[in-house]
């Protein structure tokens, strides 16, 4: 019997014993949120108590119904604990608003520390890399258009990942302007979009204006900033700081993508 089967059997056979065995998991997750500034350190025990109470008064029973032993129970349990942490944070936040004594300064302190710490920056790159991977098939297009619009160097692999059927002539023309934009490319973002849109329209069979590209890029920048601001990541980015962060990411983070065979 593998580990997952043993644990899932315990969940169904003796849920109290299951809970006792998983106290360390609960504490680890709560401490992650404490570290991110979602909870104060002195709230730790209260949060753990809230989680245990919730699990014993119905959540474990729901888990028994909803869990499918074909999947990994540890991750599923972590997700449930994550939900309960956020539920507690939401409840406490509401209560503090009623008391008019809400104190969110600790969130900003934690964020500043995170951003300025070089090791944490490496973690942030990894989170961004994971986020980009969640876009699946759309990732290549988003990355290509972001790079071009932010004036970051692109390669022919970047273009061919997005447009595998791009002709050699079009590829060559795109690279003339955008491979090393600081040398030959347009200077402002508006000029970049004006230069880029004919290529995108040709490759996608569309008839869009340059402003459509600007909106697309801005929408994705805002979305990245919003998603990377969730606890426990708490990057607190804006569109402007996201641009700076992306420039650093593409210059410092190891390239994750496989090379395209030409």
């Amino acid at each position: 019997m593998d580990v997952n089967n043993e644990i899932s059997e315990l969940l169904y056979r003796d849920s109290v014993a299951f809970l006792e065995n998983h106290q360390s998991v609960i504490k680890t997750i709560v401490m992650k949120f404490v570290g991110s500034g979602l909870f104060k350190y002195n709230e730790t025990e209260d949060v753990i108590q809230h989680i245990n109470e919730s699990l014993l008064t119905g959540v474990l029973e729901k888990m028994q119904v909803q869990y499918n032993p074909a999947y990994n129970l540890q991750s599923y349990f972590s997700k449930i604990i994550c939900n309960l942490c956020l539920q507690y944070a939401k409840k406490e936040f509401k209560r503090n608003i009623h008391r008019k004594s809400v104190d969110l300064s600790y969130v900003q302190i934690a964020t500043d520390e995170t951003i300025t710490d070089g090791i944490a920056l490496g973690e942030m790159y990894e989170h961004l890399n994971t986020l980009l991977s969640l876009y699946g098939e759309r990732r290549h297009r988003i990355e290509l258009l972001l790079k071009i619009s932010l004036g970051i160097d692109i390669s022919k692999e970047d273009v061919l990942r997005c447009y595998p059927n791009c002709s050699a002539k079009t590829l060559k023309n795109i690279l003339i302007y955008f491979e090393h934009p600081n040398e030959h490319g347009p200077s402002s973002r508006t000029a970049i979009y004006e230069k880029l849109i004919p290529f995108v329209n040709e490759l996608e069979g569309a008839n869009n204006m340059a402003d459509t590209l600007r909106k697309f890029v801005d929408r994705n920048l805002d979305e990245f900033a919003e998603i990377l601001s969730i606890p426990p990541i708490n990057a607190a980015l804006t569109r402007e700081t996201m641009i700076i962060f992306l420039e650093k990411y593409y210059s410092e983070f190891p390239k994750p993508n496989k090379k395209v065979i030409l």
């Binding site: 972590s78 989170h127 994971t130 969640l134 098939e137 919003e226 998603i227």
Partner: peptide
């Protein structure tokens, strides 16, 4: 790929579980 809220949920749990549990080297269930 299309849903912002689901991206948030996945990235959040991924961040929470960072540095814990089995990694690529371990045999893994499903």
């Amino acid at each position: 790929g299309e849903c912002k809220e689901c991206k948030k949920s996945v990235l959040q749990l991924h961040a929470v579980m960072r540095d814990t549990g089995p990694g690529k080297s371990e045999k893994y269930y499903f």
